[in-house]
Amino acid sequence: MPTATQGIYPPAPCTAVVDAEHPSRGYAVFKDRAGRYQYLVLPLARITGIESPKLLRPDAPNYLADAWLARMYTEAALGRPVPREDIALVVNSAHGRSQNQLHIHVDCVKPSVREALQHALPHLTRTWNMLPMRLPDAHGRRYIARWVEGKRLTINPFAALAGHLGDKDQMQWHSLVVAGARRVDGTPGFILLSTRAEADATPENHKNNGNSDNLHDRSCAIARPDPKK
């Protein structure tokens, strides 16, 4: 991001740069090469990934809250507002990501994933628990999940997950998903999800490598008026 901190606009190759004068908390929005509607949010600061202790500091920027606001770029690409239930943010595990710089995927969820989460929603609380069903991704992986109430993301999901894992596990093995949601009574909020990579996962054996981007639908069919287009 050579122009990201220089105040040059347009900040190519980025779509946007926010708070460039404060790299310790600023971030860039970048159009992902995958799909027409997926964007990435990347901190300007050097942060390796989900396992970075920097994300757990009390004064850490809430990059996932920033990424939720950045869904407007997906909406702009679609040319229409998108219901919160149709959007999810994904951070992959250290073993399932493509680069060692924190990047948050912003895109539409698969219709089948949204349906599964709507069925699970009445059972979710503010405590992490295993989902009763496997999510309909490419491999039917198991996820833990919890509910977060609010129109905006006011908690730090990285800290929420790390607090649940405690000393029994390590963040590097986990993905983190923030899916927009709305309860039956109309209360807006988010579903936090995480799946754990298997130590012996390889591309050949198709075991869980902690990549959750397959919950996304890069065609964004759920939000398009004519899915055939």
Rank of each mutant, 00 (worst) to 15 (best):
P203C: 07
A145V: 09
A94V: 08
W173A: 15
V29I: 15
L124C: 03
K207F: 11
V178N: 15
L165T: 13
P58M: 08
S219L: 11
G210K: 08
E75L: 03
Q99F: 02
Y9T: 01
I144N: 14
A120F: 06
S219D: 05
K31H: 08
R224T: 03
T125D: 12
L193H: 06
P136R: 09
R25C: 07
P61N: 08
H95K: 15
H22G: 02
P13A: 10
E75H: 02
R141I: 05
M1T: 04
L55Q: 14
A20M: 00
A12E: 05
P203M: 00
P132L: 05
G166W: 11
W128C: 06
L64T: 03
W68N: 15
Y143Q: 11
Y27W: 12
P111K: 13
A94W: 12
E85I: 01
L135V: 04
L55R: 09
D107A: 02
R142L: 09
F190W: 14
H119P: 06
N100A: 13
H206C: 09
P227G: 02
G210Y: 06
K207I: 01
A199W: 08
T74L: 03
Q6I: 02
D66T: 01
L121F: 12
Y63H: 11
G140M: 05
G166L: 09
E51R: 09
A12L: 07
K151T: 08
A179Q: 01
A197C: 11
S212C: 11
Y39H: 06
T5H: 10
D32P: 00
N214E: 14
A138L: 10
A20G: 07
A60V: 07
K110H: 14
T15N: 07
R84F: 02
A28V: 05
D19M: 04
A94H: 12
A28F: 00
E115Q: 15
A181N: 07
A223G: 01
Q172E: 15
N205P: 04
R97D: 12
D167I: 05
R36M: 04
D217T: 02
I104T: 10
D185T: 04
L117H: 05
V177S: 14
V17K: 09
D107C: 02
E85C: 03
R218E: 04
H206K: 13
G163F: 07
L117W: 01
W128N: 13
P61M: 08
Y39G: 01
K229P: 00
M130S: 13
P225N: 12
Q118L: 15
Q101P: 00
P83D: 03
A70Y: 00
T74S: 09
L135Q: 07
D107R: 00
G150Q: 06
P53T: 05
V29T: 06
P53R: 08
G49Y: 07
A179I: 01
E204S: 07
E204L: 05
H105V: 04
N62D: 06
L192Y: 01
V148N: 02
P136V: 08
A160V: 04
